[in-house]
Simulated assay, not measured.
Amino acid sequence: MKQLIRDDVIKAVGQADDVTIAEIIGTGASAEELAEAQAWAIDDDPLLNAGKPLPTGRVRELIDILAELETDEEQEGEVGEAGAPVE
C-alpha cells in the first residue's frame, strides 16, 4: 500500500491549502483509501445500500477532512468582492 504524496492529493481533491494537504498525507492513508473517502463524502447512499459497513480509521478521518474542505469552499463562495459578504 503506497502512501499518498502531495501530487496524489492535488490530483484527487484539486487545489487545497498546504495545511489540508498535510493533514490528508498525515493520516498515512493510501490513494485507495482517499478514493473510498471521497466516494463516501460525495454520496453515501449507494455504499450503504450495497451493505458496506460505515467507514472507520483512516477513511473516516479523511471523510472528516474532506467535509471540512468542502465547508471552507462553500464559505468562500459566499464572499463577494473585497471579502464582503454577499447580501
Score class of each variant (00 low, 15 high):
A84G: 02
V13I: 15
L54R: 13
R58Y: 03
L69V: 03
S30C: 14
Q15L: 12
D45K: 08
G57K: 12
D7I: 12
G14S: 09
D45Q: 09
M1E: 13
G77A: 09
L62K: 10
E74I: 10
G28K: 02
E32R: 11
G57E: 14
A31D: 14
A84S: 06
W40E: 05
A82S: 09
D43E: 14
W40F: 06
A37L: 02
R6I: 11
T56W: 06
A16W: 01
I21T: 13
E74N: 07
D43G: 04
G26F: 02
E36S: 14
A41E: 08
Q15N: 11
Q15I: 11
I42P: 00
E76L: 14
E33V: 08
I10E: 03
I5F: 02
D43C: 07
T71C: 06
G80Y: 03
T71G: 05
L34T: 06
V13R: 08
Q15C: 08
D43F: 04
T71K: 11
A67V: 11
A22N: 13
M1L: 13
E23R: 10
P53N: 09
I24Q: 03
P55G: 05
G26E: 06
V19R: 10
V79Y: 05
A16F: 00
L62F: 06
W40G: 02
A29F: 01
G51T: 04
I21F: 00
A35I: 11
V59N: 03
E23K: 10
L66G: 01
N49R: 13
T20E: 06
E61K: 13
E81F: 09
G80I: 01
I24C: 03
G51Q: 06
A22V: 01
I42N: 12
G14M: 06
L66E: 02
E78T: 05
E70G: 05
G77C: 05
A35S: 15
G14C: 07
A82F: 11
I65M: 03
R6H: 15
A67N: 13
I21E: 05
G26S: 04
T27L: 08
S30Y: 05
L47Q: 13
I25T: 00
T20S: 04
D43S: 10
T20H: 00
G83F: 01
R60N: 14
A67Y: 10
G57P: 10
I42H: 11
E78S: 07
L69R: 14
A84C: 04
L47E: 12
A31F: 15
A29D: 03
L62C: 09
D44R: 12
P85Y: 12
E76T: 10
D7K: 09
I5D: 15
R6P: 01
E81P: 12
K2I: 05
L69F: 01
D72L: 07
G80T: 02
K52E: 15
D45L: 07
A31K: 15
A31Q: 15
K11S: 09
L4D: 01
L66P: 01
E87W: 06
V13L: 14
E61T: 13
Q75H: 10
Q3R: 08
M1C: 11
Q15P: 06
T27R: 12
